[in-house]
């Protein structure tokens, strides 16, 4: 019981830290580096290696913190993260037959694109975006491109580190019966 409480407390602290680092530290970095979307990277990593339940906890904690500090409507980030987790989970279960590096990178890419496009729509229709329609904006696509590149690089690094650290996380194939 105590161990479980300790684990939950650790997860809450970890995801809260990621959220604070994302909106305070990452966005203050120079232009190319501030496109890293740590929250999506952590979300996909959690889903891929630890399952849906921890990923949903992560989505709620990350979304809660970002909504707390954001001046957009409360619930925007909660909605975005939950949507991303649900979609990526469905793709993992329905389409991917193994837990390999390629499937992890594919999920990371899909998650980044989903989050980027969904946030674009929500920012635009909530009036938070200051320009014209975001799909016609070069800055939007440039930002999405850099986010995808950083996500893939981070995915590669995390997968390699995790595989080297524990046998449990080494890739395996699922046989379809």
């Amino acid at each position: 019981m105590l161990k479980k409480i300790g684990q939950i407390f650790f997860l809450v602290l970890l995801f809260s830290g990621v959220a604070i680092v994302q909106f305070s530290f990452v966005l203050a970095l120079p232009s190319v580096f501030n496109q890293i979307n740590l929250t999506v990277i952590v979300l996909v990593f959690t889903l891929f290696f630890f399952g849906l339940r921890p990923a949903l906890y992560a989505a709620i904690i990350l979304g809660g913190w970002l909504d707390l500090y954001s001046f957009n409507f409360f619930g925007l980030y909660l909605l975005l993260f939950c949507l991303t987790v649900i979609l990526v989970n469905w793709i993992l279960k329905a389409w991917l037959t193994n837990r390999s590096l390629y499937s992890f990178l594919l999920l990371m890419l899909i998650a980044t694109l989903t989050f980027g496009l969904a946030s674009g729509f929500l920012f635009y229709f909530s009036g938070a975006s200051s320009g014209g329609f975001f799909l016609w904006s070069g800055a939007f696509w440039s930002k999405l491109f850099y986010q995808a590149v950083w996500s893939e690089l981070a995915g590669l690094l995390l997968f390699s580190l995790t595989g080297a650290t524990a046998r449990r996380f080494q890739p395996f194939f699922l046989e379809k019966r």
Binding site: A28, G120, F140
Partner: peptide, 12 residues
């Protein structure tokens, strides 16, 4: 200043 507010295509 404690954070930047990020929107879809630029920082607001």
């Amino acid at each position: 200043v404690i954070a930047k507010e990020a929107a879809a295509e630029d920082s607001l």
